[in-house]
Write a protein that binds this DNA or RNA. Sequence first.
RNA 1: GGAGAGGUGGCCGAGUGGCCGAAGGCGCUCCCCUGCUAAGGGAGUAUACCCUGACCGGUAUCGAGGGUUCGAAUCCCUCCCUCUCCGCCA
Length: 424
Amino acid sequence: MLDPKLLRTELPDVAAKLEIKGFVLDQAKFSELENDRKTWQIEAEKLQNERNVRSKAIGQAKAKGEDVASLLQEVAELGDKKSAADARLSEIQDLIGALTNRIPNIPHESVPAGKDEEDNKEVLTWGEPKQFDFEAKDHVDLGEKDSLLDFEAGIKLSGSRFTVMRGGVAKLHRALIQFMLDVHSNEHGYEEVSVPFLVSPASLYGTGQLPKFEEDSFKISGERELYLIPTAEVPVTNLVRDTILSPEQVPQKMVCHTPCFRSEAGSYGRDTRGLIRQHQFEKVELVQIVKPEDSYAALEELTGHAEAILQKLELPYRKVILCGGDLGFSAAKTYDLEVWLPGQNKYREISSCSNCEDFQARRLQARWRKPGQKKPELVHTINGSGLAVGRTLVAILENYQQADGRVKIPNLLRPYLANEEFIN
RNA sequence: GGAGAGGUGGCCGAGUGGCCGAAGGCGCUCCCCUGCUAAGGGAGUAUACCCUGACCGGUAUCGAGGGUUCGAAUCCCUCCCUCUCCGCCA
């Protein structure tokens, strides 16, 4: 959520900045609602005050044993006017709420203009896309051997976009999770946390998935209203919901492995082959809760931590800064890391690292006590994948494939896999 | 599944119709005292919105939403959540 004060006082400026994101803010409608809100709020509060004054007088008169009949009559006359004003006011407030809840975050000034993926700006590339002296297969073909990637079984059990992994690939998948968690917690200073995979609507609202993106998530049936998490960002960032942190509790750096569930509504036909786009995938997520003045440094740091995994696994990648049009709802600035996939002969997203500034914090009511300042201040929240495990697995299969169809295990992963040299 | 208890400010915890935005304690901030890794005294200390140049002032908020009433933290209804005991189960 944006600062309501900012919306009221600098509406044209806010609207201009949101345009970079491809969001059209109906300024006329907003101002009109705001004006209405103001008049009706003043009216409603005035009437309420009149009633309060009289009610108090009744109490005092009764205490003294005086007659209260005339006062009672005065109050009765206020009734209709007041309930009409109240009704109008809450109607307007609902309309304003419905509008502001769906306004995305304002892009940071360093975010390039642009419409979609095509306009994202490359920041750097690392490593060289591998050249093979044979025809490179994609992970689907590589995984077919011994049904290490069993797409048929996934479909049988659950339908499209679900996959079963077996044997060496299942082990590699597990090894990757542990490797990532170890690097981030041991070398990068993150606290490892384990969280629920089902969350309340309040949690999804806090990080911005609700109310605008209801159709993207899986809601479970049952007496309780719960959703499967689309990313660990939701439960982990919500850890600071409704809390005021003391200065020594900031920054917080947390790493968390969870499965992620996405309905992928609206992406029918995209990436239908292979592991790239699944309804269920696993991810190791990095989250930082920081002081506002530190958040852009934290974004660079966190992105570097995600890059470190790719570098340790010796996977070629590039780093892009998302243009306004490609930026997510809650993000002010996002770096995507894209790993090289020989099977597709292109770079594919494997991590997305965002600074949400105080946008999520305002919805979460997550604040900290800034020394020397009376009011608690909203924190800034940073999150990023470190990394998407399924896609990392794809990258390893495709980048480490041999002419004979076998797949080498990256050096640093071998200790996790009984020091084997190849996946089998 | 059965039976109970409860949700109040940064935290703990009083408060069964008006004098309650809310006692008291803890914590925190400032001041005084004390010459020491301690204690004592005093003052202050919720959030949002409206009004004002500012001060003052106003409105709302005691889990959420409705209701009763001139007036609700307090009474009634519905919902949400937490806890305890029993049963069942990993």
